[in-house]
Amino acid sequence: MQRDWPEVWGGLILAMIGIGAAFYAWQNYDLGTLRQMGPGFFPVAMGVALCGFGLIIALPGLWRRSEGVPFDIASLLLILAAVLVFGLALPRLGLVGTAFATVLIATLPAERRGWVWRGVLALAITLVTVLVFHVGLRMTLPLWPRL
């Protein structure tokens, strides 16, 4: 048992987002008047409110006890990397190359060992993807890598 860290950190991050957004909006956008509210009014108000709610969430967490939560950093980073690769590679590698690469990266955090199943799975998912999106839904996507 330990302090309720997820609540504390979650609340603090929210409070920081809130105050950051409010400050940025206050600096950059006009607040306006009640009759003609400017573009800054809403973001500032919401940012301040979010900061308040964030602190209300965070503070009690300091005195509360809770069980730790599993924080799976490897899965987190590798899955985000897979999504990123998909977004960045799609215009260059085409649907086939992108889907294949994304599946390979996404399978890295899986606990099952070996590379054969990963390769087979990547091929299979790529095939299904091409059939569904290119053949079936006729999405206008480059299919092959652009050389």
């Binding site: 899955i79 897979a82 999504v83 998909f86 977004g87 889907a99 994304t102 599946v103 996404a106 399978t107 899986a110 606990e111 099952r112 799975l121 990547a122 998912i125 299904v128 993807t129 999106f133 999405m139």
Partner: peptide, 14 residues
């Protein structure tokens, strides 16, 4: 799930 989730990732990106 090991076979399912990579497909989920590809499909949701598309």
């Amino acid at each position: 799930f090991n076979y399912l989730y990579p497909a989920i990732i590809v499909f949701l990106c598309l």
